[in-house]
């Protein structure tokens, strides 16, 4: 179809609105000092910690998010709609609020904190706290994209498999999951990206210590106080990592749509 010109004009303005701030940031980068700025001890520690915790958070998202998406897409029970909106709450919740909620759950005085303390597990001010905060905010991304894919693919093949005598686990392993694998991958990549950018909940819940809890966004926030050049350089690193991840997500997401169309 041919789009009206005004639609294209509005789209161009929208695109400029998103891209211009990035351009403005790139223009402020101190290129002469760029490499030393991003390779300082604290910068490298923050980047490595961010990658490590985001990866751990993504694994947790897959472990818990895939069953959640399956339950939401394949079962029907009273209160399911309410449950779905509640599970997706971290998407719209201000991260600081998430951090406060996590503090009251896993903190030393929290709902579960004392139990963990009895078990000898210390969550406060540990890298575990960072992973928990990141998983909390990233989980809905995986659940949402996977649930959508599960509904699009439909359950006909699963029904056929079941009538031919496959056990529920076999159906899940041989039919359902292979069908939605691309969506699961793109959901995982999106979760990773969200975990990488997590700031508010981490700051509120985990604290900030180099190498332990100070992830890249926290490092940027701190460096901005005294060293704007480092803050801008690190921001650019985060943007580049995010761009790579988003393009990866798109690449893995596309076959899922083609496959779904081919199947239907």
């Amino acid at each position: 179809m041919t789009l009206p010109r005004w639609v294209i004009a509005m789209a161009a303005i929208g695109a400029a609105f998103v891209l211009l701030p990035l351009v403005a940031m790139v223009l402020r980068v101190n290129w002469a000092e760029f490499v030393p700025l991003i390779s300082s001890e604290s910068s490298v520690a923050a980047l490595l910690l961010s990658l490590r915790t985001s990866l751990a958070a993504t694994v947790l998202c897959v472990i818990f998010g895939v069953p959640m998406a399956l339950v939401l897409a394949r079962t029907d029970f009273w209160g399911q709609k309410v449950l779905r909106s509640l599970v997706l709450l971290p998407l719209v919740l201000p991260p600081v609020v998430g951090g406060i909620a996590l503090l009251y759950t896993f903190g030393r005085r929290g709902l579960l904190g004392q139990t963990f303390e009895l078990l000898g597990i210390e969550i406060a001010f540990s890298t575990t706290a960072v992973v928990i905060a990141q998983t909390f905010v990233a989980l809905p991304f995986l659940v949402l994209s996977l649930e959508g894919a599960l509904r699009t693919v439909g359950s006909r093949y699963e029904a056929v498999g079941a009538t031919l005598g496959a056990s529920p686990t076999t159906v899940l392993r041989r039919i359902t999951l292979p069908l939605v694998l691309p969506a699961m991958l793109s959901g995982a990549v999106l979760s990773f990206a969200r975990a990488l950018g997590e700031f508010g909940a981490t700051l509120t819940f985990a604290g900030s210590l180099q190498g332990t809890t100070r992830t890249l966004p926290l490092e940027i926030y701190l460096q901005r106080e005294t060293d704007p050049d480092t803050a801008v350089a690190l921001s650019l690193v985060l943007v580049i990592v995010a761009v790579i991840i988003v393009s990866l997500a798109h690449r893995t997401g596309e076959p899922s749509r083609r496959r779904a169309r081919a199947l239907s």
């Binding site: 903190g107 001010f125 210590l209 100070r214």
Partner: peptide
């Protein structure tokens, strides 16, 4: 320290919450 916060209010918050 177990944490080096970006603002004094964050430090106070960690103490009032008994973390």
């Amino acid at each position: 320290p177990v944490s080096e916060e970006s603002s004094v209010t964050d430090v106070l918050g960690k103490v009032t919450s008994r973390e």
